[in-house]
Amino acid sequence: MDFLLIHLLNSLLFASVLFLTAGGLSLIYGVMRIVNLAHGNLYAFGAYVTAWAIGGVLAGAPTPLLYLLLPAGAVAAALLGAALEPTLLRPFYKRAEEYQLLVTFGLLMILEDLMRLLWGPYPLSASALWENSGSVTISGNPYPNYNLVVIAIGLVAAVFLWAFVYKTKFGVVLRATSQDMRMASALGIDVNRVYVQAFTLGCFMAGLGGAMIVPRDSAVLGMGVDALVLAFIVVVIGGLGSLEGALAGALIVGVVRELGITFFAEIELAVLYLIAVLVLLARPAGLFGRP
């Protein structure tokens, strides 16, 4: 029982990062009806930028300053998203979905090579933040403080996002466009602007997920694809296009993964897919999806 709280915190930690990546993927799909296969690499891009900033450029700076720079990766991913949507994605909205999949898949590969070109083939680490943050004692066992920071950022991001989508005028416009793009357009909403804003926000979330995790994990090539697969499991469970679904899916996956590792070590990798299969059988559109 000593470890119940630690297991719970581990689950929340995993869920926090998952929610940010899967939430971004879902938001973009909800508004623009695009399955962005390059989404995982925007997460990786955020991780690389933050690792580069706090592990390379400002290595040795005091810890509070490093914390301030943590979101650098999120901002960079958002800027990249803001540039990509109008140039690369917009010409393909009127085409069949296959084209969008091909374009975003191509983007996935280009981004992977771009990161290799910019930051080299080796893992890029920013572990000072992880190492300097120390541990707190939870029922006699040390627990890394940095994990608590990540969980807190995840919670704040979820609340902020909910307020943004449900309590602001921009949120109303976003939801209106999501429900009926033609009608929104007829009512005078600048759909192109909403699209670029939604895409930028989605990329910001992915980049933030990568930036938060990099002090613990270091940035490595291929991390984007792994994150994409996990994000897909979350949105399959929660329902593609739904932020509530992404939150519920992330929490379910976080808890199930922890239970899987603890009690079914032999099939750790399979457990998440089994959950997704069960949800698909019971509710093909996901828990919060619109059938």
Binding site: I6, N10, L13, D217, I261, T262
Partner: peptide, 14 residues
Amino acid sequence: GTTDFSSHITKAIA
């Protein structure tokens, strides 16, 4: 290739 061992470490300690 994973770089996240939080849960495996917790399980081992427990």
